[in-house]
Design a protein around this nucleic acid. Structure first.
Lengths: 251, 251
DNA sequence: CTCATTTTGTGCGATATATGAACAAATGTC
DNA sequence: GACATTTGTTCATATATCGCACAAAATGAG
């Protein structure tokens, strides 16, 4: 791509929008400038543009994003059939399991939730479409990484900050690679409180009719309610059934 | 605002992102150009910028958004405490009602879903955070419009395309204004298949401790399962309870 | 209240972008 | 397979943006 095929004003504006997610809902020009590393004058123009378009409001001191920015993310959810096709299956799965069910795809080193059906409140984590978790220690992340060629999975791990969220978190790259091979072989991944103490989950890949993994679905349950060892017998059949139904309807 | 305080390259890029939501997941440069009304060369530069930043991928023919664009919408969801505070209450409400519960805010003439808890699949509508419905014929929309000064509510109606979704849809502005007054008086809104045949819903405002309406929550149920007349006695107490709990925790 | 510090707003030259036409490549039609 | 159409890309140049430096305003400490 040539230098002149890049619209830096657009790129800078997107960076400004993302600056809001990292901290508070209200940002001053100077704060946004610090967060993005962009010049104050540039940030100011971007924020005024957002206000002019209705994506933000300005009270003379603070800028605040409006719900209109959801249109941007929703452009993906609405344009991609995946979340829309998966949602009803997820609702049914969640109802039958009596636990929360979610679907996600891989974006770099993270899993991104694209749909969720809730039965009971999750632990401390609040997950909505668009939420992100590190892939290496999430059940759906394990499944999605297992679907990659080994070299790519290893490359993702190398780019990941492998910090332990709980004493259970596996952080050794070789141990994780071995885990990916096991997951690939058995067709599912179980996480026993590696992300958060008290939370277990089990995930399977969602494949299209050509056998390509396009997403992952999971069921999460409190460890106090379902021990990790029971996850497989209680939920794997339900997950497999959903997986099978999806294989027939996905393009 | 001065002319030079507007970054048109940024505004055009945002328009390009939104073009995806309206149609398909894959757009060619020419298609995006038609949808946005922007010059092909300009659209191409925006799309190449998106690809360079990882918000889109280009296969030489089609551009496709990646899950990374969810970060943009998520900047709002993550930065705004509202969805995060409401979600657990919604989960509980949905579980106790045995029906779907949702929360939304007003954006112009539309309600935007900011959270949802599902128990059973909805009718034909698939709603996720970021989904939009016309405010005038949705229960949460009625509640949110009722909270506005009459002149503003009327102004919104004037800007709205008041088309009937079903034979039940109220489309007369005066009838709607009268309905808003009734809703304001009784503190809740009931919709009987005005949005979709077979779907009833009831909504109440979510107020902060200063009495300002900051969102609305609702319960939707199939008309075959719960007649409109029963909605109030079955679900209003649960909604009121959630409303009361939220009033204490909202800033 | 005053001074120091921080934050916001503005003018300007250097630099980057948008535009529309022209061309090349691909696609569709008969 | 030849023609007509659509699409993608490039280019020159008029125009708009960027980031700096400075001015103005707000904030805060003493």
């Amino acid at each position: 791509m040539r230098e002149t095929d890049f619209v830096s004003g657009f790129a800078k504006g997107l960076k400004v929008i993302e600056a809001f997610g990292e901290t508070r809902q209200r940002l001053t020009i100077a704060e946004a400038s610090k967060l993005t590393g962009l010049d104050r004058a540039t940030v100011r123009r971007s924020l005024l543009t957002l206000s002019e378009l209705g994506y933000a409001v300005y009270d003379g001191k603070f800028f605040t994003l409006t719900p209109k920015v959801l249109r941007l993310g929703h452009a993906y959810l609405a344009a991609t059939p995946l979340p829309i096709i998966i949602q009803p299956h997820l609702d049914l799965l969640s109802e039958r399991a009596g636990q929360n069910a979610s679907a996600s795809v891989l974006d770099g080193t993270e899993v991104v939730y694209i749909a969720r059906a809730s039965q009971r409140r999750v632990m401390s984590i609040n997950l909505t479409p668009g939420s992100r978790l590190p892939a290496f220690c999430a059940s759906m992340g394990r499944v999605l990484l297992s679907a990659l060629p080994e070299s790519e999975a290893r490359a993702v791990l190398e780019r990941t900050d492998l910090k332990a969220n709980t004493p259970n978190t596996k952080t050794d790259p070789e141990e994780l690679m071995a885990e990916f091979r096991r997951v690939r072989g058995q067709g599912y991944a179980v996480i026993d409180q590696e992300l958060e103490i008290g939370l277990c989950s089990i995930a399977v890949p969602v494949e299209n009719d050509r056998g390509q993994t396009v997403a992952a679905i999971n069921i999460g349950a409190p460890a106090a309610y379902v021990a990790a060892a029971e996850m497989t017998e209680r939920f794997l059949p339900l997950l497999k059934e959903t997986q099978k139904a999806l294989r027939l309807v996905l393009p």
